[in-house]
């Protein structure tokens, strides 16, 4: 009887050792997306994992976990609580930098371990095919003639589109009326239906409608024209002083170990150099290739935070 019990305990311990050994060999990285499935951050995470898997860059496995809600704060809170852990990644987009500044949450983008910016996204000013506006100048003229009456649509309050509306108003010396919708799809259907005059959209949110002749792009927020959209002028070249880049990056929990940071940054670099990433993701979804690791990325985040702070302050939305 005693022997039997000992034998059983031995078996169980052996099994446990094996299980743990298995975990140690093939590590699983939990890749948290603090937004819902199907959105921009989610797509980026899934393409990143695809780039790593298809090109067999590592033995480690990845599990994408969507933790949506609270303007990205719920997923962020989850990752902050994983302090010191090495097997957690999280996507970050500009909204997560601006939202805490507007008083909509306590967790800031600087609370995490910055691993790398892996892509740059931009904003486009878009109108529907029936719109009388043929250029940014037409929009500016209409906005000047009816102060505060021109309806601009975008997704979310105090995030990228809202801030771009403010920047455009500043650059053109006008005041426009911003209305927030939930997500790029809603913005586009309201634009096509004529319920708003102009809209902000990421290239991949409007390229289908533009190619299909339902909408037109008036200008892009980059310094120069995008190589993938050679016919769309930049605000800068049209003489409007506005430049806006949207950050898309990967972060780890606070206090991630030095080895893990080095391992992650190296893996991210390799992944963003693959054809899967460059062709299928960046070209396919009209994003800009950009890889900024470690300390330089932290600097990008800080600069963005400063820019958002100034903009939100002028908009009367700063609540720190």
């Amino acid at each position: 009887m005693y022997f039997k019990k000992g034998f059983r305990t031995g078996l169980i311990s052996l099994a446990m050792v094996l299980v743990f050994a298995g975990f140690a060999c093939a590590e699983t990285i939990e890749f948290v997306v603090p937004w819902s499935a199907g959105g921009g951050s989610d797509t980026m995470a899934r393409f990143l994992v695809k780039s790593i898997r298809d090109n067999k860059l590592t033995d480690a496995d990845f599990v994408v976990a969507n933790k949506p809600g609270g303007n990205g704060q719920i997923g962020s809170a989850y990752v902050v609580n994983k302090k010191g852990r090495d097997n957690v990644w999280m996507t970050l987009s500009s909204g997560q930098i601006s939202v805490p500044l507007a008083g909509l949450g306590k967790i800031k983008a600087t609370d995490f371990t910055a691993l790398a910016q892996i892509a740059g996204d931009v904003n486009l000013l878009v109108v529907s095919k029936d719109s009388p506006f043929k250029s940014v100048a037409d929009v500016a003229k209409a906005a000047k003639a009816n102060p505060g009456k021109l309806n601009v649509g975008g997704s979310a309050t105090a995030a990228e589109d809202h801030i771009c509306t403010y920047l455009l108003g500043k650059a053109t010396g006008t005041k426009m009326n911003y209305t927030a919708f939930s997500g790029g799809g809603e913005v586009m259907s309201n634009l096509l239906g004529g319920h708003i005059d102009v809209a902000w959209a990421n290239p991949n949110e409007c390229i289908g409608q533009v190619k299909g002749g339902l909408a037109r792009m008036l200008a892009v927020t980059t310094e120069d024209r995008l190589a993938l959209l050679p016919d769309v002028p930049s605000f800068k070249e049209l003489g409007y002083n506005m430049v806006f880049w949207q950050v898309r990056g990967v972060h780890g929990p606070p206090n991630m170990s030095k080895e893990s940071i080095a391992w992650s940054v190296d893996l991210l670099k390799k992944a963003t150099e693959t054809d899967t990433w460059q062709k299928e993701y960046l070209t396919g979804k009209v994003l800009t290739s950009r890889f900024i690791p470690g300390a330089d990325y932290t600097k990008v985040i800080k600069e963005n935070e400063e820019m958002f702070r100034e903009a939100l302050g002028s908009m009367g939305l700063l609540k720190e």
Binding site: G185, I207, K211, G212, G213
Partner: peptide, 20 residues
């Protein structure tokens, strides 16, 4: 909500849902 995810799926295959 689900068609939003499906839309993402279309784009992952390099297809662009829309008029075309």
């Amino acid at each position: 909500g689900t068609t939003a995810v499906l839309l993402g799926a279309f784009m992952m295959y390099g297809l662009q849902p829309g008029p075309l």
